[in-house]
Amino acid sequence: MAEAPPRRLGLGPPPGDAPRAELVALTAVQSEQGEAGGGGSPRRLGLLGSPLPPGAPLPGPGSGSGSACGQRSSAAHKRYRRLQNWVYNVLERPRGWAFVYHVFIFLLVFSCLVLSVLSTIQEHQELANECLLILEFVMIVVFGLEYIVRVWSAGCCCRYRGWQGRFRFARKPFCVIDFIVFVASVAVIAAGTQGNIFATSALRSMRFLQILRMVRMDRRGGTWKLLGSVVYAHSKELITAWYIGFLVLIFASFLVYLAEKDANSDFSSYADSLWWGTITLTTIGYGDKTPHTWLGRVLAAGFALLGISFFALPAGILGSGFALKVQEQHRQKHFEKRRMPAANLIQAAWRLYSTDMSRAYLTATWYYYDSILPSFRELALLFEHVQRARNGGLRPLEVRRAPVPDGAPSRYPPVATCHRPGSTSFCPGESSRMGIKDRIRMGSSQRRTGPSKQHLAPPTMPTSPSSEQVGEATSPTKVQKSWSFNDRTRFRASLRLKPRTSAEDAPSEEVA
């Protein structure tokens, strides 16, 4: 009796068929016929556990003709996506030579605008209408194809895939403007070719909807975003200037109206006075309405000098805001240009540092100066060695804690006790272990408590650290204090090793 083939788990290929790579489910599931010992083939499952149809090819690079078809379809799909992405970037994010197409579109729109203006002049109306009709045909074809291509290429973005995504893309403001202008152009052409009475009025009214094509030149909205950011950044200043200017306008108009309503027919109503105030304070000055009385002229002159300053403030605020924003954008561009080279330089330096163990090129690091100058660790070890030599091999803490019996001779020589300023008595072995921070803190506390006492003391002649007598400086308080830590004499004296002298005989010792 033939044995059933062993159940295979995992992703390994079956024996005897090495080139074939078959994806098997996580659990080997066989058909009921196979479990019962029949000759049925096992049921194939996909990666998600769903059964595959009987005629479906197995996924994998070596699955025969199905694999070749899959490779061809995958390559075609990649080319399709690449083309779609390229078209989308050309239309929505132009760079380099892609601006040539947008310059061509701008020339078409500008020519249409010029011809629309010439069509309103009686001398050039006939020729402009003929040229404009031909140009409209060209623009309908160009913009119609462009609109379709834009909607198709938007599928390269995830949020615009599918018919719902394309509809979302078509609802964008600039796409809506394109659609309105396209419909208006078709209506103008249809009305112009019919030759009816309505054609002339339709051409004159709907052609100027094509002015909206100038708005579509900035599809990404960079200028509007820049203007919005400047207004938002200086909103408080703008609101303040406009508010005060509006108050000056209504008060000036009302007072001039009261002064001129009886003697001047131009100011017969408050609305006429508001019109005069707006034209005057905005420095336009049509001259259609002028005050005639001396009181009205004085009020107009005073409020004009006051109001023009507030009406001119928004222009200066926006101008300075634009300058600052442009400078910030230039700085951001320079930062973006330098970020990648800086990151590459840091990575290269780290690779060199991690692979080169000698690091002989590091001549400006802490390790280099640590090898030249005595390190703080060596100074600490030197302090501890000196203290243990004086205390008979014991550390200062051990000397303080060691009990001394009554009447027993002390094995240590008597030492002079010292007192730290602002604290109780402490171990004499710690007097010379006072660090730089303690010395600086002690000097600052003395300056806070009594700076007036220092200038009363007789001035001391500054001497070099080499000429100081070591026996005289029994305490860190003898170090000359200065008002600034930048004094080199104080810094050098604080680094010197001060020996400890006994109370009975204080021989001067120098520590090399």
Rank of each mutant, 00 (worst) to 15 (best):
G277R: 03
M206R: 05
D266H: 13
A271D: 04
D272A: 08
I279V: 09
L227P: 03
I284N: 02
P94S: 15
P94T: 10
D272V: 03
G285A: 05
L258P: 01
N264D: 09
Y160N: 06
T290A: 10
T280R: 07
P314S: 00
A233E: 15
A323D: 15
R204H: 08
I284T: 05
K337T: 05
A241V: 03
V149D: 10
L203R: 03
N264H: 11
R82L: 14
P314L: 02
V141E: 11
W276R: 00
I211F: 11
F322Y: 08
S269Y: 08
N196I: 06
V248G: 07
G287A: 03
N344Y: 15
L226M: 01
I284M: 04
L299R: 01
E146Q: 05
L274H: 05
P173H: 04
L306Q: 05
F303L: 08
P94A: 07
H102D: 04
R339S: 09
V256A: 05
I250N: 06
F322C: 12
R20S: 13
V142D: 10
H334R: 08
G165C: 07
E260A: 02
W275C: 04
S185W: 09
R207G: 01
K333M: 06
A259G: 01
F169V: 08
A315V: 09
I148N: 15
M206K: 07
R95P: 14
G319C: 15
G287D: 10
L258R: 09
V230M: 00
A342V: 04
P94H: 05
I244T: 07
V90L: 15
T282P: 07
H102R: 07
L247P: 04
I317L: 09
K325R: 05
H292P: 04
I189V: 02
F311C: 06
R207L: 08
E237Q: 08
F179I: 08
F322V: 11
F246S: 10
R220L: 11
F179Y: 05
R331W: 10
L212P: 09
E336G: 02
W275L: 00
C175W: 11
F322I: 13
L318V: 13
G277E: 03
V298G: 09
V151A: 10
K325N: 09
T200M: 13
Q327L: 08
Q84H: 06
V298D: 00
F335Y: 14
A263P: 10
G222V: 02
G296V: 00
G296D: 00
A191T: 10
G222C: 01
P94L: 10
F169C: 03
E237A: 07
V230E: 00
G165R: 04
D288E: 04
S229P: 03
L83R: 11
F267L: 07
S201C: 11
Y101N: 06
V186G: 06
S205R: 03
F303Y: 02
E237K: 02
A343D: 09
C112W: 00
E336V: 03
H234Q: 14
E22G: 12
L318R: 11
E146K: 06
Q332P: 01
P314A: 00
I284S: 02
E237V: 02
M1K: 12
G277W: 03
P314T: 03
Y257D: 07
G319R: 09
D218H: 07
L91R: 15
L249P: 10
L48P: 09
R338W: 09
V100F: 08
L107W: 09
V183E: 08
G302R: 00
H334P: 00
L227M: 06
R150G: 04
D266Y: 02
R161P: 12
P341S: 15
E336Q: 12
L281V: 02
Q84L: 06
I148L: 03
W86R: 14
F311S: 04
H234L: 08
G287C: 03
T293P: 00
Q329P: 14
N264I: 05
R95L: 11
D272Y: 08
Y243F: 09
F254C: 11
H334D: 09
W276C: 04
S309C: 14
S320Y: 13
I284F: 05
R297S: 04
K236N: 03
D288A: 00
L281S: 05
A342T: 07
L249R: 05
G228D: 05
A170D: 05
A315D: 04
Y80N: 13
S119C: 09
Y160H: 09
D272G: 06
A252V: 08
F267V: 09
K337M: 10
K261E: 05
S320C: 00
A343P: 02
I211N: 08
F335S: 14
P291L: 03
G307R: 01
L318I: 14
E328A: 13
L255P: 01
Q329K: 06
L238V: 06
R338Q: 14
G307V: 01
S265C: 13
V109D: 02
F246L: 12
D266A: 07
G192C: 13
I317M: 07
E260G: 06
Y160S: 05
A199P: 02
H102L: 03
K289R: 14
M1I: 14
E136K: 10
L281W: 05
Y257C: 01
A323V: 10
W152L: 02
N264Y: 02
V176D: 02
W224G: 07
A202E: 10
